[in-house]
Design a protein around this nucleic acid. Structure first.
Lengths: 239, 239
DNA sequence: AATGTGGAATATGTATTCAATGTTTAATCT
DNA sequence: AGATTAAACATTGAATACATATTCCACATT
């Protein structure tokens, strides 16, 4: 069964991740309960939940405000993710992969290859299938995390997915924000990671995955800094 | 200001960590609100919070029960902690330590040495100052985590501290459960970690810390399995 | 005897009300 | 005019009341 509290939680979380409510905004219970057509009670529960997830900051008697993430914090989070998924790779290499995980990863490699082949030398919005790439990428990482068979690891990594700006790169269509170089490098990374896992080279698998995600973090950082500049320009044009 | 919800959260969390409410127990709102002398509302908030922390399991319309942790899950959590604190060491070694962190760590080494000196060759309940050792140990790890200056890392590691059985080893007097070998090995580990940090050998610092905590995890596992056997014996004697 | 249904009792989910604390505004005093 | 204070207003925290789902037991039926 689905409760009002759960509806409120998902709805408000979505609004935050999509950037519909800006960082730093004060979320008040009455407006939210009106907006969602429910009483304050389930809204309060939702706000408490989201604060625990780290999306909101809470001060007693003053309520909740949307947490502002600095570039540094987002990069920090990505580095933590890099370390944790690196650990997942180490565990998988040590334990050895079962047949199903292995075939799923190999399919990811094939799919990635196909997407790049179809794209050609130059990546544009038209010829690059960002949707398919993201799906392949999610499956790739998820498969390794699950194959690690460490439930804590899975839980910890999940939390990082909810960080607003980082999550945008998963949700939004960032096909136009990547270039051929990044995509091809990511594909090579994936190939090397799977190779290391199959050879059960745990240290190599760990190092490769860590580097792979640290690269992604750098891409996000670059993009973020560029858009920051753009925003400043926008502000100036208004002034 | 301190709210009723916060009081309830801390109180119930304590009861769980101390083992006063057994794993698997169904926590009901009415008895808890009576016990704590407040209405159901703040109790509900507290239960929601603790479920988010991973201490309780929630099923809609059925309420909350205390999560049961298997030995495997506890060891899993400790291994995650080992990896994360290893990362903290790596970051500290890369950035370099400020003077204050450095002196705090060196004081920890001195304190540890003093405790061991005072204890002598054989560790017993009487001559081993478990309280002082735990405090030194907590300071040691906390200092490194804070010096990493990665807020996400700090947040993630905090969650692991709340796991019931693992937390017992921090809270309860486990002086009687350790032997001279473990304590001396831990002290040597600490010395090597600080040495690596001061020489800014990031890979060595990371590896040493990881191994240090994996050892602790193994100690917990051994202890847990021993007490499990004891419990089985108890059960048999009852039958 | 076992299973299934129905209803009472119990527990959770939500709404509403009341209380306490912050915030804002306006008026008064310097 | 500016600052300070008090009062009105708004918002959060907690308690109570109500609605709805689940559990459990009794009873009936196969």
């Amino acid at each position: 069964m689905i409760t009002q509290s759960e509806i409120a939680t998902e709805n408000i979380r979505d609004q935050i991740i999509r950037g519909e409510v800006p960082p730093g905004a004060h979320l008040q219970e009455n407006p939210l309960s009106e907006q969602l057509g429910m009483s304050r009670t389930p809204v309060r529960t939702a706000l408490n939940t989201l604060a625990q997830e780290g999306l909101l900051e809470y001060v007693a008697k003053r309520g909740y405000r949307v947490k502002e993430f600095t570039i540094a914090e987002i990069v920090d989070a990505y580095n933590v993710r890099a370390t944790l998924e690196g650990m997942a790779c180490r565990l998988v290499a040590e334990k050895g992969m079962d047949r199903w995980s292995r075939s799923k990863l190999e399919k990811c490699i094939e799919d990635g290859e196909a997407i790049i082949q179809k794209t050609g030398a130059e990546i544009t919005d038209d010829n690059f299938d960002g949707q398919a790439w993201r799906q392949m990428n999610t499956t790739f990482h998820q498969t390794i995390i699950e194959a690690s068979e460490n439930s804590f690891l899975q839980q910890q990594i999940k939390q990082i997915i909810f960080i607003p700006v980082a999550a945008l790169f998963v949700l939004a269509d960032w096909g136009s924000r990547v270039n051929a170089g990044n995509i091809k490098r990511a594909q090579v990374d994936h190939i090397n990671i799977v190779d290391a896992l199959e050879r059960r080279q745990s240290a190599r698998a760990e190092a490769r995955m860590r580097e792979h995600l640290e690269n992604t973090g750098r891409v996000i950082q670059d993009y973020y800094e560029n858009t920051q500049e753009t925003h400043i320009e926008d502000d100036q044009s208004v002034a």
